[in-house]
């Protein structure tokens, strides 16, 4: 829990620095690289999350595993600061928060949509439009199919949820008739 919170702060700082120096694109590219590294080498994620990494070891790992591949000095420095402050465990969450801040800045919102069956492209378009009206932002839909919903869909974005599935309705019906 504390890792995520710290990651949010570092991401915020990095974003502010990048925006100030107009290096946002370069930094974003580097963050993507970090994300990729984590995806390709799951062991490194495990290593970062394991407790009690000696500062010196951490620094070496950061240099060898990440900074080698990074192009932007600000981004590399952020990682060094994190290693210095013994916050390597927050590193796996850095990208997530950075992208969230970026999306906020660019007025985008990512909505995860779960459908019971593969939805019509028409409906998806309609949904996008509706949600874009509702949130006032450019909507990116992450589609997903989950037959457990029986029918309908569930939308989740930031800290909101809109449950319009048959499963959800059955649940609220269950509450009303107190079974």
């Amino acid at each position: 829990m504390i890792f995520k919170m710290c990651a949010e702060r570092y991401a915020g700082a990095l974003f502010a620095v990048a925006a100030e120096n107009k290096e946002l694109d370069a930094v974003t590219a580097d963050i993507r690289t970090i994300d990729e590294i984590f995806e390709k080498v799951p062991e490194i994620r495990k290593y970062c999350l394991s407790a009690n990494i000696a500062t010196d070891n951490g620094k070496i790992v950061i240099e060898e595993a990440f900074i080698k591949y990074l192009k932007n000095a600000k981004c590399a420095n952020t990682l060094r600061v994190m290693a210095e402050n013994r916050r390597i465990s927050s590193l796996p969450f850095l990208a997530e928060h950075f992208f969230a801040i970026l999306a906020e800045k660019e007025n985008r919102v990512t909505i995860s949509a779960q459908f019971a069956t593969e939805p019509d492209p028409e409906i998806v378009e309609k949904l996008k439009k509706k949600m874009s009206n509702k949130t006032g932002k450019v909507v990116e839909l992450n589609l997903d199919v989950n037959p457990e919903l029986l029918g309908g869909f569930i939308l989740k974005w930031s800290d909101r949820m809109l449950d319009n599935s048959v499963k959800g309705r059955l649940k609220s019906l269950k509450k009303v008739i107190k079974i």
Partner: peptide, 11 residues
């Protein structure tokens, strides 16, 4: 008396 509605919840 049950009205199914898709309410937006804060999660």
């Amino acid at each position: 008396g049950f009205e199914p509605s898709a309410e937006e919840d804060e999660i």
